[in-house]
Design a binder for these strands. Structure first.
Lengths: 326, 326
DNA sequence: CTGAAAGCGCTTACAG
DNA sequence: CTGAAAGCGCTTACAG
């Protein structure tokens, strides 16, 4: 910008005025500065501008894994919202690792973003307190913050699970297995709770031996199904707690004779094209992302009301696999 | 940092030295500064640091749409590579719009990133020439740059298409339809060329009436298949140019009696679980992203050799749909 | 309408 | 080993 001023033979401030389209500049000046900008191929350095203004016009998004369809749909929504507000988006995947989540988030906060949307991997976010104090806005998505007060946009996991399991109970099932993510993952715990609540509401005894929570690997799924389908009272239906588990169960069932009913939490591409088509409890990642971003921009816009939690509803999509009778 | 210096009663530079772990600082000083940092909850402002150093330690990634599985796998790979090099990643989707691609890319270049990986939507990238001149590194992924010299990492689309169509020819098919993306999309043109080359190599006449290129919408696909499957010489096989088209064709065929053989370009989740399982020509988005990022970091590391193009190979995955005989 | 000065938070030479 | 000065590229008051 200094170069431009010199080239145009005007003051630095005049260049700044032209570049920022401020009024009260004579057209002769504007002309000269424009020409100089053209000649030198000048483009304003946003980094410097924003340093001076105390803002970055960037927001950060910390995900579990961008490559996951849920995360990428969420990303797309946050991105649109950011762009609409004139912000750019920094993204990073934690790989479901609390340390990586922390490092990424803090790297974003170190003067690179004005706010962050975090899909947390860990359960202790006290490390964010100083950043929030310093003015960084933070919104948690899909899972709540741990040990600090912060805005969160969640899905009604418990209600969704009740919906799915309730649907199986309506078909007459009484022996319903549940396979979900490992202990320590918030959403998985909530969904298991919903599973249990649905059973209890229907006065079906909760049987811990029908629940398997662990790493969603084919091997783990196989053992879980072996167990659930064996014995004198095998399950006649399975409720899976996430779409990787759902797909893994489908793959596994393809190798077996027995065909229990199946309802999965979270929809997935081509669920309707499998046979039987897969009944799911759908959550909307795009709405989740959009809502989280909207809350973030409200905060960045000066909203200082106390932290709030928004819970999004799920919906059941019957397609066939959940309507197999007991 | 100034506050820290005052609080510790030392010079600004000493604080800088401690923060940066420079040697030649007496441990007494280190102690005092550390204490002050602790007291004030100080964290270095990366934006300011990098402004001074003339770098941003960020790279940008411009995609068609993060929500697309191909894009998100690519993103994940670029992200890992960036993080490994100590860089953060800015991402944005162009929505297959050349203007949006340009705006995003230039927004990144305006002092926010040291380099960009671009999956281009447009075919004229002269707008990037001043940025490259100014020192921004640019690598194109999946599709080449238009009207400028730049590094590109591509997939052997033509070879991949020859592979897929060749496979159908081997099963005895002679009437093979092709459905692909609209004109103007580089990869679609290359794949159509491969389709044609494969036919010609097998001395099967190229029949333009068996080719449909347009927006991948269910309606468009239906019309295309109507046409291809009608008349005295209907197609006995279809080669689709991208995975959305493949899925759309599968959905459409589910409503028809005739079941032509099918090979699709680009693999997709659950392709193996459909019936019949879908034979595809697979490209590896993760390798594409990783390679593009590696080239970018070589450039950022000072490699000034002339622009180069890397072409990645595809591979055929036979699963059933492509082995239906003529 | 125009411009010289100071400063955003940091680092890079340069002296002590 | 330590620090005062200048400057990265821009904007915000303040004078003319």
């Amino acid at each position: 910008m200094n170069d431009v001023a010199r080239h145009a033979g005007v003051g630095l401030k005049t260049v700044s005025r032209v570049v920022n389209g401020e009024p009260r500049v004579s057209s002769a000046m504007v002309q000269r500065v424009r020409q100089a900008i053209e000649d030198l191929g000048f483009r304003r350095h946003e980094g410097a501008r924003l340093l001076r203004r105390g803002r970055t016009a960037c927001v950060g998004l910390v995900l579990e894994d961008v490559a996951d369809p849920f995360s990428s749909a969420l990303t797309r929504a946050v991105e649109s919202e950011a762009w609409a507000n004139g912000f750019l988006l920094l993204t990073g995947s934690s790989g479901e690792d609390a340390v990586q989540e922390r490092e990424l988030t803090l790297a974003f906060c170190a003067g690179r973003v004005d706010g962050v949307v975090v899909v947390p991997a860990g359960d202790d976010h006290r490390y964010l307190a100083p950043e929030i104090e310093a003015g960084v806005a933070a919104v948690f998505a899909d899972r709540p913050a741990g040990r600090i007060e912060a805005d969160a946009v969640l899905v009604d996991n418990t209600g969704g699970a009740r919906l799915g399991v309730g649907h199986l109970l309506e078909q007459g099932h009484r022996r319903i297995g549940h396979i979900g993510d490992a202990e320590g993952i918030f959403t998985a715990g909530e969904r298991q709770r919903g599973y249990r609540e649905a059973l209890e509401a229907a006065e079906v005894p909760y049987d811990p031996s029908l629940v398997a929570r662990g790493p969603v690997e084919q091997e783990f799924i196989r053992h879980a199904l072996d167990r659930m389908l064996a014995g004198p009272e095998p399950v006649t239906a399975v409720f899976t707690g996430n779409n990787r588990a759902t797909v893994a169960v489908i793959r596994d069932l393809a190798t077996r004779e027995r065909r229990p009913a199946l309802v999965g939490f979270d929809d997935f591409e081509l669920a309707d094209m499998l046979s039987p088509a897969v009944t799911v409890v759908a959550q909307d990642a795009a709405v989740l992302g959009r809502t989280a971003a909207q809350v973030l921009f409200q905060r960045l816009g000066g909203d200082v009301s106390s932290a709030r939690t928004i819970e999004l509803q799920t919906r059941l999509i019957p397609r066939g696999s959940g309507e197999i009778p007991a």
